[in-house]
C-alpha cells in the first residue's frame, strides 16, 4: 500500500485479540487527500488548489510513462514489425477497430490521435493504483477526469457546430424529433440537462468513482489484513489471526488483478463514450 495507507493501517496493526488494543479503523476517504509537500504548498494562498501533492507527482510519472512508451515503441518503425512496434500497433488498431470505427465510422479516423492519447493517458493514470509504492490511481482525484471530460465536452460541441452548423446542431441535440409540440416545454429542459450537463458530469464521475471505489476496496483489504495480523496473541489466537490476515492478503491479490481489469475497462469505456459523443455530434439527428 502507499505510505499513507501503511501509516493508516499501522495505527490498527496487530489489534486483533489484543485486550484493550485499538479497535479496527477502516481506511477513510482521507487517503484520497494527501497533504501537499511543504515546498509546493501554495494551497493556502490560492483558493480551490491543492498544492504539489502525491497526485501531481504520480501524474508526472504516468505522463512520462506514456511518453516513454510512445518514444520506445515508435522509435524505429518498419514494414516488418518487431515486438516493440507490435505493441504500439496493437494499441492503435485496438482503439481504431474497437472504439473509433464502430462509433464514428471510417471518417472518424481523424479523431484517432485524440482517442489513442486519451486511452493511453487514462490507462497509465489508472495503473498508478497497482504499481507498488505508488499505489494511488491518479484518476481517483476528480480533477483529472474532469479535465479530460472537459476536453471531450468542448471537442464534441465544436465538432457538432462545425459539421452541422450552430442552430441545426443545438436544435437536433435539444429538441427530440417526432415529439408532439405540447410536451416540448417538458422535454427540452430534460434534454439540455442530460446532453450538456449530466453527460460530461457522469463522463468524469464514472471514471473517478470506479477508481475511487476500487482503491478504497484494496485499502480496506490491506488495512484489515494488517489489523488482523497478530501472531503474538498466543498459539491458538495467533494462528487464527494469521489465517485471517492470510486470506485477506489472498483477497487483496485477487482484487488487485481484478482492479487491473477494471482499470483497462474504464479507460476503454471513457474513450468509447468520448467517441460516441463525437460521433453523435458529427451526424445529423
Amino acid at each position: 500500500m502507499s505510505a499513507d495507507t501503511l501509516n493508516l493501517a499501522a495505527e490498527g496493526g496487530g489489534g486483533l485479540f489484543t485486550p484493550g488494543g485499538p479497535g479496527f479503523e477502516a481506511p477513510s476517504v482521507g487517503i484520497f487527500f494527501p497533504s501537499p509537500w511543504s515546498w509546493g504548498d501554495y494551497s493556502e494562498a490560492l483558493p480551490y488548489t491543492s498544492g504539489i501533492t502525491k497526485y501531481v507527482i504520480l501524474l508526472l510519472v504516468a505522463t512520462s510513462l506514456v511518453v516513454f512508451f510512445l518514444w520506445w515503441t515508435s522509435r524505429k518503425l518498419s514494414v516488418v514489425p518487431d515486438r516493440r512496434q507490435s505493441i504500439l500497433e496493437l494499441v492503435v488498431l485496438f482503439v481504431r477497430d474497437q472504439i473509433s470505427r464502430p462509433m464514428i465510422g471510417v471518417k472518424g479516423d481523424k479523431y484517432l490521435p485524440l482517442l489513442v492519447s486519451l486511452f493511453l493517458f487514462i490507462f497509465a493514470m489508472n495503473v498508478m493504483g497497482i504499481i507498488p509504492f505508488l499505489q494511488l490511481p491518479v484518476t481517483s482525484n476528480l480533477s483529472y477526469p474532469a479535465g479530460l471530460a472537459l476536453v471531450i465536452y468542448i471537442t464534441f460541441i465544436t465538432v457538432g457546430i462545425r459539421s452541422q452548423g450552430f442552430t441545426h446542431y443545438f436544435k437536433g441535440a435539444v429538441v427530440p424529433s417526432g415529439a408532439p409540440g405540447w410536451i416540448l416545454p417538458l422535454l427540452v429542459p430534460i434534454e439540455i440537462l442530460s446532453n450538456f450537463i449530466i453527460r460530461p458530469a457522469t463522463h468524469a464521475i464514472r471514471l473517478f468513482a470506479t477508481m475511487f471505489a476500487g482503491h478504497l476496496l484494496l485499502a480496506t483489504f490491506a488495512a484489515g489484513g494488517w489489523y488482523m495480523f497478530n501472531p503474538a496473541a498466543g498459539p491458538l489466537y495467533g494462528t487464527i489471526s494469521v489465517l485471517f490476515s492470510g486470506s485477506a492478503l489472498l483477497a487483496f491479490i485477487i482484487f488487485t488483478a481484478f482492479e487491473l481489469v477494471i482499470m483497462f475497462l474504464q479507460a476503454f469505456v471513457f474513450t468509447l463514450l468520448a467517441a460516441l459523443y463525437i460521433g453523435q455530434a458529427q451526424e445529423a439527428h
Binding site: 476517504v29 474497437q98 464502430p102 462509433m103 457522469t202 464521475i205 464514472r206 473517478f208 468513482a209 470506479t210 475511487f212 471505489a213 475497462l265 476503454f268 469505456v269 468509447l272 463514450l273 460516441l276
Partner: peptide, 27 residues
C-alpha cells in the same frame, strides 16, 4: 458480436454510473 459488445459496454457504463453516483454521494 462486435457492435453488440460495444453497445453492451455502453449500456453497462451508463447504468454503472448510477451506482457509482450513489457511492460517491455517500461519501
Amino acid at each position: 458480436r462486435g457492435p453488440l459488445q460495444t453497445n453492451i459496454y455502453i449500456g453497462f457504463a451508463l447504468i454503472e454510473a448510477l451506482a457509482l453516483l450513489g457511492f460517491v454521494l455517500a461519501f
